[in-house]
Design a protein around this nucleic acid. Structure first.
Lengths: 165, 165
DNA sequence: ATATAGTAGTTGCGTATTGCAAGCAGTTGA
DNA sequence: TCAACTGCTTGCAATACGCAACTACTATAT
């Protein structure tokens, strides 16, 4: 942000913003887990982010324009973080990374079911999901189809199948 | 690699391997710039990677299975790095990142022309490009179409247009 | 044979980032 | 009033990064 860019290559510029171990984790939880508050992002993350890292990443992602912050009317000290269009537009990147990870890395079934759904649905489901995210985060009118609900149901079905084998 | 994973989420596992500022830069140069030797990757990179970082990344990417190394027959000390199928399969990830970066970040025209081509061509061109990479890096039979040549020509055309305005 | 340039790295060292544990100040609800 | 909850901040140690110099070997030219 402050100092000059290493180069004008799109891959490089993307890495300058997202090229660390936590930024995409935070965005993933906001996007797929609908976590909008600091505490939710802090404690309900599978990976266990530290609070100072989370504070720093939220600040940087705001500076870069991927998320925004508003006061939560229900609690004066509570902030509500939202994805911007820039953040929502990362859906295809997440889909591509999920597809690659599922193919080559030792993923767990319950945590990769969403990636599988996004892979099978292709660009059509990504568009529907982004439309829904725009409704949830930007106040746009809600689309009929709820990909979010489909993703959650798929996850819960896997968990239920594991619990009762 | 050595210690346990933070979680089995595909996004997280991908970030554990590629979530830093340099790994994808190295892979990008191997993939789109056809840089196969240490010196090429070191000096012909727009971003200017340090030699110790490059050595470390090449080692880690080999350990993770994204690249392989062979002795270059023309020079006993020269190593030849190749992409594996795991590395080649990152093409859609690069394409998605390139599309996103081109839309939201201050990319330069000459360095984003390749991303634009990959975006316009869609999955069909990605497949052709991956087939060509398999020929260049894995010894598979070469496809008729050379996406690599198309990417290079597009870059050279932009540079020529800039030189003679 | 000797010199020169090129090969792939390694080493030292200072700075920046990360990770962990604890603490802080304001807010809410009982 | 007070405990629990809110979004952070601080201190400190470990790790990673970045730069410059340097090593060791190989090929080539004279």
């Amino acid at each position: 942000m402050k100092d000059a860019h290493r180069s004008g290559c799109p891959i490089n510029l993307t890495l300058e913003i997202l090229g660390d171990r936590w930024s995409l984790i935070v965005l993933r939880d906001m996007m797929f887990g609908n976590r909008r508050h600091f505490r939710e992002l802090l404690t309900r993350s599978d990976e266990g982010i530290a609070s100072n890292i989370l504070a720093d990443r939220l600040k940087r992602l705001m500076e870069e324009g991927l998320i925004s912050r508003a006061d939560d009317p229900s609690h004066k000290q509570k902030g509500l973080y939202s994805l911007t269009e820039m953040g929502i537009s990362l859906v295809p990147v997440f889909a591509a990374m999920g597809t690659w990870g599922r193919r080559f890395l030792p993923v767990s079934e319950e945590l990769s079911i969403r990636a599988e759904l996004l892979e099978r649905g292709g660009p059509a489901i990504w568009e529907d999901f982004m439309a829904e995210l725009r409704a949830m985060h930007l106040g746009m009118p809600a689309p009929e189809r709820s990909v979010f609900a489909e993703l959650r149901k798929a996850y819960e079905d896997v968990m239920a199948a594991k619990a009762v084998p």
